[in-house]
Design a protein around this nucleic acid. Structure first.
Lengths: 205, 205
DNA sequence: AATAGATGTAAGAGACGTTAACATAATTTT
DNA sequence: AAAATTATGTTAACGTCTCTTACATCTATT
């Protein structure tokens, strides 16, 4: 997640025309998504930000959807990596591991609400995209594995999948409601750690 | 200004230029949202569908966001009405009532995925809109009340809110994952009725 | 009937996505 | 090293979108 290139100048090798346009475009898009919201940003502005003409992006991508797909793919990778990282400190099969996973998922949504919205908004037009599906499976796979270990059952068992899915629905739902401000507006105010603990206890206990 | 214009459904009077443009625009938008997806439709096309120029909508709305807000408000009203309707047959305080509510929520998402996406996508730019917040509270209020009745506690108690919120997160999350096709793709295949029953049992039991 | 307000149209500004025609930098082939 | 090729930019332009302005017309009120 902390892969940000501090300055545009450094990144641009300035050797080839631009040198690093592809990744800088993705970075610009990432930034604009959070600044302007996942629906109100333009490729044209990302190009401006990268210091190129509005037609330049089309030398690297076949269109806006493909650019978004690339950004989303990056983000999902980062998310999967982060999830693996945060659960590491806790022993295999422990409930703390599950809770850390949930917290990581929700933190991602809170820290990158525009990206979160894009990830699950983009599904609308890329429902059958292989790459995105793969990334999604990876994330879910992490949860299934942790759940299976906690319950002491096989990763392949339907029960593990079911429990993992139940966890996922709650964490995913809470993530949405959080970035939508619904939780706050409905006067839900108990601490999130407690909420997560209650969720995992109810689903796995 | 009273924008309610009571009972718009009296059909186009056809006396005045168009007569019923406002509500027909909303209908056209509703249709386009499902046809083209919640992000790929235009007011211009809705105007075409209604048989007017692309400038006409701006006599009735102050811009695209306001149109979307109107459409979303309508939809949330309809959803609240529907939720009250489906739980009616079941006795107050019964778990069946809770399950019917959940099923209704998910059915709405499945039947109007574009609208569902719009409702929770629009929050991005209307987070502090009073009207939308009110509608949201209405829906949540229905759940809180049913939960409180089931648990035999006061509607105002934090516990009722908490349990209702837990239910909401799961149902909301499952709705999202369903329209995103994630459940299907992850090989989650147990029947939804069973899933809902398990959710309510775990949260309220 | 006269007037004012409501509701439509046409024309157009400004932004965007995208493509086409063209220019030059970098790489590969000869 | 020169030539050919490929990669990556630019400018100009098309069609579409949102939204505004100027104007026309319909309806209701006085």
């Amino acid at each position: 997640m902390n892969e940000e290139r501090a300055s545009v100048e450094i990144a641009a090798k300035a050797g080839y025309h631009h040198g690093d346009l592809r990744s800088q475009l993705l970075a610009a898009v990432r930034q604009l998504i959070e600044e302007k919201g996942s629906e109100n940003f333009s490729i044209a502005e990302a190009a401006r930000k990268a210091g190129v003409s509005s037609a330049a992006p089309y030398r690297h991508f076949n269109g806006k959807p493909e650019i978004l797909k690339a950004v989303v793919t990056q983000a999902m990778e980062a998310k999967a990596v982060e999830m693996r990282r945060v659960m590491e400190p806790y022993p295999e099969g422990s409930i703390e591991r599950i809770n850390a996973l949930g917290k990581c998922y929700i933190d991602f949504a809170r820290q990158h609400p525009g990206m979160f919205r894009l990830i699950f908004g983009i599904t609308e037009s890329h429902e059958d995209d292989e790459i995105l599906s793969k990334k999604g499976e990876q994330v879910f796979g992490i949860v299934v594995e942790a759940v299976a270990k906690t319950l002491g059952i096989s990763t392949d068992s339907p029960e593990a999948k079911k429990r993992a899915y139940l966890l996922w629905t709650m964490v995913h739902g809470h993530s949405w409601l959080t970035i939508d401000g619904k939780a706050r507006k409905q006067g839900i105010e108990f601490p999130e750690d407690q909420l997560l603990a209650e969720i995992s206890q109810r689903v796995l206990g």
